[in-house]
Amino acid sequence: MDYRKYRPAKLLEKFVECYFVWEVESDKPLRIESPPNGLCSLVFNFQDTYHVSNHKYEKRKVPNCFMTGQALSNYTLHINGKISVMGIAFKPAAIYNFYKLSMYELTDERICFSTVQSNPDSEVESWTNMAKSHPERIKILETYLLELIKKTGYGDPAIIDAANEIFYTKGKINVTELLDKVPMSRRNFERRFLEEVGVSPKTYAKIRRFGYTCSLMAGNRDINLMDVLYKGGYYDQSHFIKDFKYFSGRTPRKYAKTNVELANYVDRISLVERRLQEGI
């Protein structure tokens, strides 16, 4: 199993966390779990179809090209055969900024990209399908986004910055203090945040903190939970347990023992540092 991340161009850093490529070939059914990570995505699958299950769906076919908003619970991918996936991991307010799509519509959903897009832009789907390699596809996506950023910009800068601040601080931020820094009323801020990110600022901070905490536990069966609680930014055990039950349906101890996150499987997660324009 191979998983690679590619850094975006400087101009896109406010909106794109990374591009990713994930390739799996398995002759037996594989389950990969993922916690909510605070990012949104545009994903393309070039090989076999796979399925997803979460608190809503027992097993649902994943479209070949789709967009996701904020996830509110852990989900599990069911893979059987050959998967070749690539995509864009968007920062929290990016999809609204590029597509002016009310993000609460995408919360906890995987929606076909063709449904989201009007015809001219959905061409990017066929361009990526025609490309012969993942680096070539990533170049196509980056060119597409660099064009998109010139003609869009629907997001409110205050919301983009506030959402990114929650993301960068891994949810370890006082949302009331954040509100004080924003040049708009609480009501307006929360309404805009729901529209542009998909959840309230408080919920987004919770999602981000949980996702980060899970990343501290991924691939590690023998962990000190008090250490994780502290590093994750939880004030006490009861909040720590409450969040784990809410998002994963399990206690932190059980989660640590049973999680089947991607980090448990991949042979290599590499971050490609070279800039795309320099040729990858």
């Binding site: 809503k56 919360t107 906890d108």
Partner: peptide
């Protein structure tokens, strides 16, 4: 006043 924390479809 109210704050919508999340809105999801379920069942």
């Amino acid at each position: 006043d109210n704050t919508i924390n999340s809105v999801v479809t379920e069942n």
